[in-house]
């Protein structure tokens, strides 16, 4: 049991990047960088399982200095933290090679973890591919998209959603990579003394190669579809007006019935309906008494 290691790979980003309503420009605010609900759930699972094992819990985040605030909060919860520095630009991050990212995260972990936890998908890119790459890199099993995760002896018992509301319960042998949903679990809050102690703490930066973008992004901007070209109308405005209104075309003039007594008016109506096919033959003999 000794020297076990639980690792949480958490993404820390501005969860509400601002999109300028006029220009479509995206601004990410470093002050509001935070872990998403599922990242926070992964950290909570990590802390819980780590303390059950009496093991170290290490939270690793790839990101810029804006991640240090949230990482200090994690530090004050008793976990170790490490940051893998990445390029800052949003466009570059969009193009990040997730396999390369998984490689550097695994390199940053250093040791051989018994359990790796992460969110089911990142809040801003959301491919959900990272856990698979990490599992491949470590050569261990993976169990993605879990809603519950419990220790059962030497194994983990996990549950995940399937289609049509069904659930799947799985026994996951360790070591494993598990990704979790933000279901029924919230990150605990740090005590005030721990927060004060961590307020100025140094966040260690992992000395691993920074993954570069896999593809080159030429530019990112709001989608602005070009206006559809419609051919100019043909003919004079008088002709178009005539075509639209049907004026000067031959048409059936309105029939003037009456003034007549009610029975005759009814007969005239019925006859009109029968003539135009609204009444069947059988009913035409019907008259108002």
């Amino acid at each position: 049991m000794a020297d076990r290691l639980v690792v949480v790979l958490a993404r820390c980003t501005d969860l509400r990047a601002e999109v300028d309503p006029l220009s479509g420009a995206i601004t990410r605010d470093p002050r509001t960088a935070a872990f998403s609900a599922s990242d926070a759930a992964a950290i909570e699972h990590g802390l819980r399982i780590g303390s059950a094992w009496g093991a170290r819990t290490l939270v690793v985040t790839a990101g810029g200095v804006e991640c240090e605030g949230p990482l200090r909060e994690v530090l004050s919860l008793g976990a170790e933290v490490r940051r893998v520095p990445t390029r800052g630009s949003y466009v570059d991050e969009l193009a990040t090679d997730e396999r390369a990212l998984a490689k550097s995260l695994v390199a940053a972990i250093g040791g051989r973890p018994d359990l790796v936890l992460c969110a089911d998908r990142s809040a801003d890119r959301g491919t959900g591919a990272l856990p698979a790459f990490v599992a491949h890199e470590l050569g261990v099993v993976q169990a993605p998209g879990l809603v519950s995760l419990e220790l059962d002896g030497e194994d983990l018992v996990a549950e995940r959603r399937l289609d049509y509301g069904r659930r799947e319960r799985m026994r996951v042998p360790l070591p494993a990579v598990c990704s979790v949903e933000a279901a029924g679990i919230r990150l605990r809050r740090a005590s005030l003394p721990a927060s004060l102690a961590a307020a100025t703490a140094e966040v260690p930066v992992a000395d691993v190669p920074v993954p570069g973008p896999a593809v080159r992004v030429l530019g990112a901007r709001a989608a602005r579809p070009r206006p559809r070209h419609l051919p100019a109308p043909t003919g004079s405005s008088r002709e178009r007006l005539l075509a639209l209104t049907g004026a000067l075309l031959s048409h059936e003039p309105p029939t003037v019935v009456g003034p007549v007594a009610a029975p005759e008016a009814a007969d005239a109506l019925l006859e009109f309906l029968a003539r135009n096919g609204y009444l069947s033959e059988a009913r035409t003999g019907w008259t108002v008494q």
Binding site: G69, E73, R189, A190, S191, L192, P193, S195, L196, A199, T200
Partner: peptide, 30 residues
Amino acid sequence: QLVTSTVATGLIVEAGRVVGVRTDRPDGDL
């Protein structure tokens, strides 16, 4: 020392004197 995400929920008063605050964090008296 700046501590964010922390609400001061009340005062700690002793003998008519404010001697600290309670916060909503665990172990949160200061």
